[in-house]
Nucleic acid binder design. Sequence first.
DNA 1: ATTCCCGTTTGATCTGAATCAAATGCTTAC
DNA 2: GTAAGCATTTGATTCAGATCAAACGGGAAT
Lengths: 231, 231
Amino acid sequence: MNTANALKKTALFSGMDDEKVALFASKSLVRHYEKGEELFAMGDQAASFFFIIDGWVKLYRITREGEESIINVFAPHETFAEAAVFGPMQRYPVNAQAVEDTTLLEIPRSLFVETIRADSDLAISILGAIAAKQHYLIQQIEQLTVREAPQRIGTFLLRLCPPGATRNIEVALPYDKSLIARRLNIQPETFSRAFKKLEPHGVHLQGRVAVIEEIGRLAAFCDVEDRDKPC
Amino acid sequence: MNTANALKKTALFSGMDDEKVALFASKSLVRHYEKGEELFAMGDQAASFFFIIDGWVKLYRITREGEESIINVFAPHETFAEAAVFGPMQRYPVNAQAVEDTTLLEIPRSLFVETIRADSDLAISILGAIAAKQHYLIQQIEQLTVREAPQRIGTFLLRLCPPGATRNIEVALPYDKSLIARRLNIQPETFSRAFKKLEPHGVHLQGRVAVIEEIGRLAAFCDVEDRDKPC
DNA sequence: ATTCCCGTTTGATCTGAATCAAATGCTTAC
DNA sequence: GTAAGCATTTGATTCAGATCAAACGGGAAT
């Protein structure tokens, strides 16, 4: 099955043999959510974690003033909420909502726990996978604190570029601009204006598609070290 | 041994029986660092993670402009760098420096990996411990993005209060104000001014000691939900 | 005790982004 | 096709925090 192949490419499953991955794929539940549907709420019992077959999912919290704080937005073929499932509370610490029509695999905790019990090497590789995610969170903190708006947007765009591409890249924005804005901790108005400040650096916006003339130029402006440095 | 008792209180070791903990304590290395000494640099091979017996350690990165971005500052009896040790790179993704005179336990990766191999239930509890840390990072993102300076400082102070205390609490600042400032992503000047904005809420600063008249009042201002909510 | 150094405070000014307000454009539903 | 309802853009104003500059203060070394 195709899903199994995709699964195997994630950090979480990469240490597993094909047979086991297939087992996971078959024992997990495929579910479809429409844009705007809630997957789970903060405080819910964390019985499963998720693999996105297709679509985009945001994790967010609601502040006391009723504003959304975006924690992360996950892309197709990413897993999320693993930490909640293994955490001491076994509750989701955030809310999750599909921001586009989304198909995902719901993987029950129990299945995973059993597999780990039987194979402790696997546990170490999972430990590694979760650790890697933590690394990403650290980057996000740096991103949010040090950079300013246009550079944050630039970095976001760079991440959307297919690897290897160098010039005249058309990047379709994966979800609403207003969501991208809040994900980057910017107001929609500021986002709109900040995007224009990227034009001198070879980035043009046509509706929902951004065209990047030259990736190196944008990267230089955004001050991104190598796009994914080993540390 | 005393260190073993302290160790057992950390999330990472809480799932281990006394005998094993004692083994860890004995096989690990106790090291002392003076204020300002570097523990490791970004990119170094991550052969060990750490438990702080006494002192304070900052994790930070250097931006291209040469500025420090503070990722976290760890307190006595906390562990850090577990994720790096189990991550796919096995390299530290940040720099670490003692910000006060510090004594710590250096726990080798190998020791841990072997123990997990032999006891996969332990693996699950470690998974949980790392997951909990991730949760903390998420809070930090929220903290840095949503709140403004005086509230960030207030939240920081609240964390330093001994549990159970309610009024007229004297809190000694654990390290330099300028470091606290950057840790909270505030300039030192702004920190100084923002601190004064807490006076109307019952917080007074006397040198390196803050006096909190009433914890509830400060908590209300900072908009902290219950100080450690289960989710 | 005096000096030096560095962390901290205070003051004045600047600026990026938020906010308030309104116009425009795109989708969706009828 | 048209109207309604959002999302996005544009404009004007405000504000929190950064930056620049200078004074202050306390600890360490002499």
